[in-house]
């Protein structure tokens, strides 16, 4: 039931793009920090006001809770995340609460770009940016790809020769 008929229709044999396992760690950290800030903003003033627990303990609690929430969220995010390279474009499924499936037709991709941060380089992974001439979805990022696959994809997505197209 969760696998939509319509999308399977759009999809071809190309299938799922792999997600590097290290991406979960990066998502855990980024979502963890995002959770930490509101927790700090609530717990520390409460600790100061009511003297219920010492401030360092409140700080530690916020950090630990933030990381726990972040880890939970990152696991959900990774479980629901999927990027597919189809015959005629790229389909990205992402989001935990607000979910979106984005289809970027290959014919509309203006240019592609492979980006590597310091952590990416360490783990030999990369993110692939797709640029379209659109407005809202002018720049779409596929994170956590193995570097080799990202580079292959960068070239194939732009190669419009008929034999590659299958057209």
């Amino acid at each position: 039931m969760s696998e939509p008929e319509a999308v399977r229709d759009v999809r071809s044999d190309h299938g799922l793009l792999p997600l590097q396992p290290h991406m979960r760690l990066i998502w855990t950290l980024s979502h963890g920090f995002a959770w930490m800030l509101p927790l700090l903003a609530v717990l520390v003033p409460l600790a100061v006001k009511f003297d219920a627990l010492p401030v360092p303990v409140a700080l530690l609690l916020a950090i630990v809770l933030g990381l726990l929430f972040g880890r939970h969220y990152a696991q959900r995010y990774a479980a629901l995340y999927a990027a597919m390279h189809l015959a005629d474009g790229v389909l990205i499924r992402r989001g935990v609460w607000w979910r979106a499936e984005i289809f970027v037709p290959r014919a509309r991709i203006q240019h592609t770009e492979v980006n590597q941060g310091p952590l990416d380089r360490r783990w030999d992974m990369a993110s692939l940016s797709l640029h379209t001439a659109g407005t809202r979805l002018e720049h779409i990022v596929l994170p956590g790809l193995p570097r080799v696959i990202a580079e292959q994809l960068r070239d194939t997505l732009l190669d419009r020769r008929p034999h590659v197209d299958g057209a």
Binding site: F103, V104, G134, T135, R136, L137
Partner: peptide
């Protein structure tokens, strides 16, 4: 059309709905 998006909020999922959004040039 430049890209198509299918979106579902938690409320959408609860009531069996979804929304479809398109992206175009120069919007």
């Amino acid at each position: 059309l430049q890209a198509v998006t299918l979106k579902q909020s938690p409320f959408d999922r609860r009531s069996g709905m979804a929304s479809v959004q398109i992206d175009s040039m120069a919007a």
